[in-house]
């Protein structure tokens, strides 16, 4: 079945919204009424129809517009896409992974034909039909990582694995929750996570790294992370913080429903076959408070999570200025009734 791609914007007039069936498939990240950092990693296996886990690389109604937004960001700031010289092979690995997953999951929209190293890639939603030689840089308009991630929703980090650590040596990062690839490139797992509060002390990163370095090819894993964004802006980069920061001061009781978004990252971890690198796609989903409260369990639960969130996490996620206004607004949707365990709507 074909996806009806929305024409919408993530800047200026902010016309982004979710259609009702996409609200129901939103990856709500709270399985209980409270939130704290944990090693929340599980196998990345296919889930039920009508969830974002239906396919391992999810393509949704926002695809075409998200790719247009990425192109705008890259034209303004090419440093959002960087790859250290030893990462080219991993880029080809990633291109293969994304092309095969998309073509298998969405044959109406994507197709890949291989004759030896001669590959033909058709991306119908974006109007692309390219034939190239796998492994030959001169046959693509961009490097392999940039080529395929200009056609794939979400940010991507490629991690080189050496000395028992992971090194952020390549990435396409245009829809990030306030961290800089240009600054973090070349760092190891502990270094790029340095600014995160509380989690180091809890031993979360030591255990997570151990898990990640043991990931096997064909056995991807995933976790959810979340924050909040004012206006449906994908590019909440530190690079542009001086442009979008003022949005955080514009939240009022009247505009919470439309302006305030829960931002969820579906992060997955995949071993790449030729380079032995790990790829980390960070797929970002946005939902307006008006949309979220159409699911009464989510409204109740998010109210409780936000109200009881440890102050360190609220500060780190940048919620401080508008959190009280949002809690007050959400409280109208929380009658105090118990919520059922698990993520799904009741």
């Amino acid at each position: 079945m074909g996806i009806n791609f929305r024409q919408e914007t993530f800047r200026d007039d902010y016309t982004f919204r979710n259609s009702p069936e996409f609200v129901r498939r939103f990856p709500f990240p709270f399985h209980e009424d409270a939130y704290m950092y944990a090693v929340n990693i599980e196998p990345h296996v296919q889930g039920p129809k009508g969830t974002v886990f239906e396919n391992l690389i999810d393509v949704d109604e926002h695809y075409v517009s998200e790719m247009r937004d990425r192109a705008i960001v890259l034209a303004e700031d090419p440093l959002r896409c960087q790859s250290l010289p030893h990462m080219t092979l991993a880029g080809w690995d990633l291109l293969e992974l994304l092309m095969t997953e998309k073509a298998n999951s969405y044959p109406d929209h994507f197709s890949l034909t291989r004759e030896g190293d001669r590959w033909r890639w058709i991306n119908r939603p974006l109007g692309i039909d390219d034939t190239f030689t796998f492994g030959d840089l001169s046959t693509l308009p961009y490097g392999p990582m940039e080529y395929i991630t200009r056609q794939s929703q979400g940010d991507f980090c490629i991690l080189d694995q050496r000395d028992g650590n992971l090194w952020m040596d390549a990435g396409m990062v245009t829809t990030q929750a306030d961290w800089s690839l240009d600054f973090d490139i070349g760092m190891n797992f502990f270094e790029w996570h340095a600014p995160v509060p509380l989690a180091h002390e809890k031993g979360i990163f030591t255990r997570a790294l151990k898990f990640l370095t043991n990931i096997q090819q064909g056995k991807p894993a995933r976790r959810l992370n979340w924050t909040m964004t004012i206006n449906p802006r994908l590019d909440t980069s530190p690079e542009n913080y001086h442009k979008w920061g003022t949005d955080r001061a514009t939240v009022t009781p009247e505009n919470v429903g439309d302006k305030v978004h829960l931002r969820v990252e579906l992060q997955s971890f995949w071993r790449l076959p030729r380079s032995n690198a790990l790829v980390f796609p960070i797929r970002c989903y946005l939902i307006k408070m008006d949309e979220l409260v159409t699911v009464s369990k989510w409204a109740r639960r998010f109210h409780r999570v936000l109200r009881d969130l440890p102050i360190e996490l609220a500060e780190y996620k940048g919620l401080t200025r508008y959190r009280p206004t949002v809690i007050e607004w959400l409280s109208k949707y929380d009658d105090g009734a118990p919520t059922s365990p698990g993520f799904a709507p009741d």
Binding site: S180, F183, D184, I185, G186, M187, A194, P195, P238, Y241, H242, W244, G245, T246, R248, A249, R321
Partner: peptide
């Protein structure tokens, strides 16, 4: 001026301090 440091750039990170309210 943050404590976050990049060896590759040999620099600490500076982030606009009054972006939310200039």
């Amino acid at each position: 001026v943050r404590d976050h440091y990049s060896r590759r750039l040999a620099a600490f990170q500076g982030v606009c301090i009054n972006a939310e309210d200039p």
